[in-house]
């Protein structure tokens, strides 16, 4: 079953049935990750390029491993090692990559909307690996995959996103994905880090942590970008931790079987306490494994079929 679009740009534009298809396919892919020979020949002869205008460890490694496990060839271009520094435009860079015969570009970029822009000007597929504050669809999918694996469903879950939702592409992709899949989404942060207005998006917004945690099935903790402190959006990491840090005491408010998630990398002792991060209810390492499975599923669904 083909996806509605040949690109994966955000979860806002992705139909719910496509998300379900991706999550189902990822279940099958996860089995491959448990084998001693973690490789299938499916995408032999396909090639992709990770084009990263922002530093990243896990997302990029995850995509590259997913490609290798599926037998696709991958190359990578990062800001520090290419002509990006010389001021080449995004479109020129992308055209150069395509001219080398690459079937897919996986891009991370600091400007919101860049992958939408890129997708309008290339022949191949584009996967958004994070664009500015806008979207990080593969993170949203792997978070949903992890929730579904543990709790068996997404519909009706109460998912609380804690932290800098205003500047977070992870938060936006979680919101769109979860709402489309029938979950209830809450958000808690200092009011200076909360979105002003979410329009029609049905998200309950709290400026205190405690009421948002009440009865939560999942608590997804966002990384606190410490540079926001320099811009004066909160006074100190210490105060943030004191009022908005997720710790064991506060988690007593949540459902007894609560899952605690974090997209990484963590600031231990700031947005999440070490006790919580390392507790059995934490799925932080598993999210990384699931990230590979979800990305394998996407590669299969986008590169596997014949062109129309």
């Amino acid at each position: 079953m083909k996806l509605a679009s040949r690109h994966v740009l955000d979860l806002e534009t992705m139909p719910a049935e496509d998300m379900k298809n991706i999550l189902d396919t990822a279940e099958s892919m996860k089995e491959i990750l448990g084998r001693s020979i973690k490789k299938v020949p499916t995408l032999r002869g396909k090639s992709l390029c990770t084009l990263f205008y922002e530093p990243s460890t896990r997302t990029r490694a995850s995509f590259e491993l997913a490609a290798k496990y599926m037998s696709a060839d991958s190359i990578s271009i990062a800001t520090a090692t290419s002509s990006i520094k010389k001021g080449e435009t995004l479109l020129d860079t992308a055209r150069t990559i395509e001219a080398m015969g690459v079937d897919m570009i996986i891009m991370r970029h600091p400007v919101s909307g860049s992958s939408h822009f890129l997708s309008r000007h290339v022949k191949g597929a584009v996967i958004n690996a994070g664009d500015g504050m806008h979207a990080h669809p593969t993170q949203g999918l792997l978070d949903m995959f992890t929730m579904r694996q543990h709790l068996g469903r997404l519909e009706g879950l109460k998912v609380t996103i804690v932290g800098d939702a205003l500047h977070s592409r992870v938060a936006r992709s979680n919101m769109w994905g979860l709402i489309k899949m029938g979950a209830q989404v809450c958000m808690a942060a200092p009011s200076t880090l909360l979105p002003l207005d979410l329009g029609d998006l049905d998200v309950k917004v709290y400026d205190r942590l405690e009421p948002a945690l009440e009865g939560a099935d999942v608590v997804n903790v966002l990384r606190l970008q410490l540079e926001r402190q320099k811009r004066g959006l909160f006074p100190s990491a210490r105060e943030y931790s004191q009022f908005y840090g997720v710790n064991q005491e506060r988690l007593k408010l949540a459902s007894p079987d609560v899952l605690v998630m974090h997209p990484g990398p963590m600031n231990r002792g700031v947005e999440i306490s070490t006790e919580v991060a390392d507790a059995p209810m934490s799925t932080i390492d598993e999210q990384v494994t699931n990230g590979v499975a979800v990305r394998m599923a996407l590669l299969y669904l986008l590169l596997g079929g014949a062109d129309e």
């Binding site: 079953m1 083909k2 298809n21 189902d24 396919t25 279940e27 099958s28 892919m29 089995e31 491959i32 299938v40 020949p41 499916t42 002869g45 599926m70 599923a297 299969y300 669904l301 596997g304 079929g305 014949a306 062109d307 129309e308």
Partner: peptide, 23 residues
């Protein structure tokens, strides 16, 4: 056994087959 990922006709079929679990 699900053999979808091993098919030799994946790149010629437009009705992309659904991958299921191998157990």
């Amino acid at each position: 056994l699900d053999i979808t990922l091993y098919r030799d006709d994946l790149t010629t079929r437009t009705d992309q087959p659904i991958v299921q679990k191998t157990e």
